[in-house]
Amino acid sequence: MYDIIIIGAGPAGLTAAIYGRRANKSVLVLEAKSYGGQIINTLDIENYPANNHISGFDFATNLYNQAKELGAEIVFDKVIEITNNKEVITANNKYNAKAIIIATGSDNRKLGLPNEDELIGKGVSYCATCDGAFFKGKDVAVVGGGNTALEDALYLSNLANKVYIIHRRDEFRGEEKSVNLLKEKDNVEFVFNSNVTKLISDDKLNGIEVTNKDGSSKTIDVNGLFIAIGRIPENQNFAKLINLNEAGYIIAGEDCTTNIPGIFVAGDNRTKEVRQLVTATSDGAIAATNAIKYIDNGE
């Protein structure tokens, strides 16, 4: 029996582990893949207080080592289910806790096209700054209308021969400043009111079929497609027990409590306005503090 089981070793989960250990609680962190979460894809973090430049990898590794040095136990295993009496069932084991913190974060939202998965790494990407360099001088497309899509398109416009921006509406949700910068670029073309409806490939991506609202469709030859249509919270395995909103986020306020006493949520998978590194670590501190209170009150 652990005092606190934390699901997810990203910034929220590892921060919760630090707070839990410093309050002398036994802490188990369960991680399905690898510590750090999505921050490891960030080249240079420039907005974390008191750290004007740090790579996502260094940030995650420091945090991981800090949690381990304080005595958090970290096991790589995927959580399948949690129960009302705080049993945590993983792919390989079962654990019990007095309190649980769900800090599973989010994953890339996919277009949902049939051959999308098999083309990942063969032209389909969800991270322009990670994979953009492989498309120097080539033609690429970005799908999406938010800030990520606009920033991706700007980044790619400096590398690629041509950048198409495919957006289902005729105006962007993202910042106007980015839109204006893109409009000034000679190699950027906007494709509005359109969805990507087919990925054309032999072994790798050669083009996309784009269908307009009016029903007409056309083929655009591209070697790369960068999908930036948002993220989905990884809460599917908790949906039976924990209340989620329509978009799949765990419903919780700033106190990080869920509908089940003793089960807390921290980080990007919670309903909130601002999803940033600093708000993820902040959630970790709050969720752990409330978990400690819950345990100490003997509830």
Binding site: I120, G121, K122, S125, C130, D131, F134, K204, N223
Partner: peptide
């Protein structure tokens, strides 16, 4: 044809037999 890394390619007798992309 590497267009995303990490990319792990298994090679046996000079031929690619399998590939894994991403962490």
């Amino acid at each position: 044809n590497v267009s995303s890394i990490p990319c792990l390619v298994l090679i046996e007798n000079g031929e690619e037999t399998n590939r894994s992309i991403g962490l």
